[in-house]
Design a protein around this nucleic acid. Structure first.
Lengths: 144, 144
DNA sequence: TATTGTTATACTCTATAACTATA
DNA sequence: TATAGTTATAGAGTATAACAATA
């Protein structure tokens, strides 16, 4: 049985598969556009998102689902851009904590504003559909 | 007004935003896991997906939303892995058409099988909810 | 001994610009 | 002149392995 035959055997799954692919492409494009508009790469924007409050390098790596060695470079670039700073942890001298600068805070707020304001899903439905979608997504994420 | 204040002012949008972020993370992880399990990077897997039938390099670049110069490298690696081949176009000698090998076809079928079989969304809901989600996503994608 | 962060290394993806062969 | 594909280049992200400082 080929992939096409399987898809034909279950049209609902095939439709959902296709729609989810389209949704993923939209969301990826939206994220890249918003980050790029603010002079950030996607991983830099993702890092910023986790810096609402100060975070050790190690924790940032976990949030970003990547190896700790990558975070060194990402934070280097945020620091070069004047958006974040490394601070020594007084309780454990091995640890460096990443803190947003004032400019970093403004950039993060702007990123959030643009991201929500132009989000293709958040504004493509009326409130009743938005509530239904919210409940469905909550169910999906709880199930996984 | 900070980002948090805005979010607090519209809980439904804030919830949806958070849930969509979670959904995106899940789908990204799923895609990387499936591609990786088959020895592919995500762009290579995406390219394979567009090779159900032979495609010129230029068209492949459009499907992948990237510059044509990138496709050279991606197809190089698919070719090195024995999954695809470049064929001259008899009608226009500037054009090279990319074709799956037998092994490429098998890899693509396996990718599709694994991807659908373990998809976190496709199998997290019962059929009624799946139909509702399908209709909502269709509406969202049509609106954008 | 274990953990935190960095460095060195190698690979892939990315865009831009310059190039070739062809149309 | 314009288009298809490649190459050269530079930058960013990715993982692995090895390392220094600290716990």
């Amino acid at each position: 049985m080929t992939a096409d035959q399987r898809a034909a055997a279950d049209p609902l799954t095939a439709d959902l598969h296709e729609l989810l692919h389209g949704l993923g492409a939209r969301m990826k494009a939206h994220l890249e556009r918003c980050a790029g508009a603010l002079g950030l790469t996607v991983p830099q924007a993702a890092a910023l998102r986790h810096l609402q409050s100060p975070v050790p390098m190690r924790d940032l790596a976990e949030h970003l689902y990547c190896d700790a060695s990558n975070v060194t470079g990402i934070v280097d670039r945020l620091e070069e851009a004047g958006l974040a700073e490394r601070r020594p942890d007084p309780d454990d001298r091995r640890v460096k904590t990443v803190v947003l600068t004032g400019e970093g805070r403004r950039r993060l707020d702007e990123l959030h504003r643009v991201f929500v304001e132009r989000h293709p899903v958040l504004h493509g439905l009326d409130d009743e559909d938005r509530r239904i979608l919210r409940d469905l997504l909550a169910k999906v994420l709880a199930a996984g």
